[in-house]
């Protein structure tokens, strides 16, 4: 639904003028930012620890390699992640158990930050179908893809779809396509997906279809609206997934993939 507003504002914006301006912003104290992903596909847990920086300055590299990071499974058994530099921590060969709740702890500068996420079962993506269009919004002609799947009935499902074009993954926050089953529970869904460009004949289109937890869905929803520059009624920091005032998220997710060559 947000796209509807973007379309309207696009037309208005296209005919108006824009310029970069100077804005005087207050500086806030640095806050801890933790991004954590546990992908069941490669059984790997990845965590990145960083700090907020002043808005107009280029972000400064932070030495956040001295934290202790661990993940706990549904039984409470903890396994530690190793630091690989640049504030990144990793754990491989961590066998997933679907539908159990994982918890992560980060101890940094004497403060313990923790968050939890349920790992949903994967939902299978069916083969991608695609359609030709003469183009809209000035993009010229080309193809766009439909994502096909059967939504499991009765459970609340939340998804992120990541599209790749010719091997290049569109994985910036605003490229993620969010989905839920509020209107489609139990249905066979065929949903058109749009990225910044259309596909041409001969292109390879891939979709990674992630099943994520509800918290992470709302987190990305809020992040996408503020990453757009702050046009919502209440531009504010997204819901807190980590405690102790840390920003960021922890997402344990499963996925399925499909690839097609446009012919």
């Amino acid at each position: 639904m947000r796209t509807l507003f973007y379309i309207l504002s696009f037309v208005i914006v296209a005919n108006s003028c824009q310029k970069v301006i100077d804005v005087d912003l207050n500086e806030s104290n640095s806050k801890v930012v933790i991004e954590a992903n546990y992908s069941s596909e490669d059984s790997t847990v990845r965590l990145r620890l960083s700090l907020t920086s002043s808005y107009f300055e280029p972000s400064s590299a932070s030495e956040l390699n001295s934290a202790t990071v661990s993940i706990l499974d549904g039984n409470g058994t903890a396994t530690f992640l190793s630091n690989i530099g640049n504030g990144e921590y990793i754990l491989t060969n961590y066998v997933p158990t679907y539908n159990s709740i994982y918890r992560m702890n980060v101890v940094y500068n004497g403060v313990t930050y923790s968050a939890s996420s349920e790992l949903p079962s994967p939902v299978q993506l069916q083969p991608i179908t695609y359609e030709f269009t003469t183009g809209f919004f000035g993009s010229g002609e080309g193809y766009f893809c439909y994502q096909n799947y059967d939504d499991p009935i009765g459970s609340e499902n939340f998804y992120i779809s990541v599209i790749s074009k010719n091997g290049f993954e569109k994985n910036k926050v605003n490229d993620f396509i969010l989905g839920d089953d509020r209107l489609t529970d139990g249905n066979t869904v065929s949903r058109p997906l749009f990225i910044d460009s259309l596909f041409a004949l001969g292109d390879t289109a891939s979709i990674e279809f992630r099943s994520i937890s509800e918290d992470v869905f709302y987190y990305y929803d809020e992040i996408q609206s503020i990453a757009g520059g702050g046009q919502s009624a209440a531009p504010a920091n997204p819901l807190k997934i980590w405690d102790n005032d840390a920003l960021g998220y922890f997402s344990a997710y499963s996925n399925s993939r499909q690839t097609v060559i446009i012919q």
């Binding site: 806030s28 991004e35 920086s53 808005y55 972000s59 993620f176 702050g230 960021g248």
Partner: peptide
Amino acid sequence: TFPSGKYEIN
């Protein structure tokens, strides 16, 4: 409401 800082996600 304007931001007072920034951070990186993805």
